[in-house]
Design a protein around this nucleic acid. Structure first.
Lengths: 265, 265
DNA sequence: AGTTTTCATTGACAAGGATCAACGCATTTT
DNA sequence: AAAATGCGTTGATCCTTGTCAATGAAAACT
């Protein structure tokens, strides 16, 4: 629970190294110092827009606390969430782009922003940072393609099961290695509506799928955002991804991890 | 219609500079020479697998002629095409990855392959090449997210209309600037089945959508893979993307261009 | 505390689209 | 030339899922 730091607060540096995926992890101390001076810490309330979909995006940033969502939308309001952003994740888009996603606070959030042009200059001057960014973007691309498979091929039931399993796996990460039969607690980090927008369906359908799983004894509902997985294998079958061996499952978790699908403890 | 070139054939260099998106465009002559010596030209028949989904991928490559498709699939055979690759497009995945897409020839195709590790070394030694690759991957990511919007939010009818419009716009590229009311020929570069796998639907539904457009006078069917757009605006409305101004439409075209959605003349 | 708003859930209903089956047509095979 | 195969199309049917509406509960607001 970091407070909004002052500019000379070392939080920025901590942030940038919090996670192997962060592009700043490779920066040497002098560079970190510089990065720290470039950043501006801002706080947002749930629902606040950080970067709007249409506008020219002049900032990039790192999530310090809270959850952000990236979304694209159609004129009539239909919205697709294309990623959730958790602490240490970068948001915004460096270098000229024709795209544009909405970046919005999904909860109260503290972020650390940079002038986009300045950050680009930093990347160009530091190839090892840009390399790190490339690796991160490649992972994001893998994740997006996996999501295309989910959106294009899986039923709502399968999507929800997949979603829960990934969250569960992440939650069991700190448990004993063989978690195959261990009931896991799952905490969904977003509302039903956002979950629906992420899975390409409606809140009603998600509700039905979840309560069907509960009736079938696959899960137990603790509260609307918290579940216990009772029959792991049954849920795996319901996800349509039973073919995945352990290793592949780990891949999937990593992939979704990249998309910010995992709960933040 | 290039023949399979010998190793000293300059085709490789031509390929790598064919398009601003190519990562080799920034290479100086000496480097190009080296790249040319690294590459191996291979020819595939339609349906041939170039990189399989599960295996460790040891090559990357550039399309010389023909069309490749990238796809992900589920155990029961459901398949989602995540991108089409046209001449000058790169395929394969550099640097460690947990993902994996099938890369398959969608038509007879000539490709130019590189040892993955060697290509990675090249990138690491040439930051400006890696920068170019980053820009390209960022565009692919934008494209993938746009496709997530299409798969998650649009109806089949809208998807098909969107698809046709992008192809049409590309086809009209060489016409007079104001193409708003000009009937354009559209050539779809893949079969109905692949089109369906790309749009997250079935061949039957695509057929119905197309013939409904024809009945409504929006398009004229020349042959199963070739159409004439009669009422451009009507088709735009049907795509659900009418809100897009010209500039946004151009964005969309670019985005899909990146995904290999455009016909190759 | 009382009111309003948001959110999850449930039911009833409708519809979009998948599935199954059959047909015509072109291309390939023998 | 005949048979077989693949592809696009069309029709009939079924079912998953979106839509609409109502309820209850929690949270935010006055």
């Amino acid at each position: 629970m970091p407070r909004a730091p002052t500019l000379d607060n070392p939080l920025t540096n901590l942030l940038c190294t919090a996670n192997g995926r962060s592009v700043c992890a490779v920066a040497d101390p002098a560079l970190r110092e510089k990065i720290g001076r470039m950043c501006r810490v801002r706080k947002f309330k749930a629902g606040d827009t950080i970067i709007s979909e249409g506008k020219e995006r002049s900032i990039v940033g790192v999530v310090s606390s809270g959850v952000l969502k990236m979304a694209k939308s159609m004129a009539d309001g239909r919205q697709q969430i294309v990623g959730l952003l958790l602490p240490s994740d970068m948001f915004g888009r460096v270098f000229p782009s024709d795209g544009g996603v909405l970046v919005e606070a999904a909860s109260e959030a503290v972020v650390c922003t940079f002038d986009r042009a300045a950050f680009e200059a930093l990347l160009l001057a530091n190839p090892q940072m840009e390399h790190k960014l490339l690796l991160s973007v490649l992972d994001e691309l893998d994740a997006a393609r996996d999501w295309m498979l989910l959106l294009g091929c899986q039923t709502v039931r399968e999507r929800v099961a997949t979603f829960l399993l990934v969250l569960a796996r992440r939650g069991a990460e700190r448990s004993v290695p063989n978690t195959a039969c261990i009931a896991a607690r799952v905490r969904v980090p977003v509302s039903r509506k956002d979950m629906a927008a992420y899975l390409g369906t409606t809140p009603e359908s998600i509700s039905r799928a979840i309560h069907k799983f509960a009736r079938d004894g696959l899960i137990r509902i603790i509260d609307p955002l918290c579940f216990e997985i009772v029959q792991r294998h049954g849920l795996v079958r319901a996800s349509g991804r039973e073919e995945l061996h352990a290793v592949d499952e780990d891949r999937l978790v990593q992939r979704m991890n990249v998309m910010g699908l995992v709960t933040v403890k």
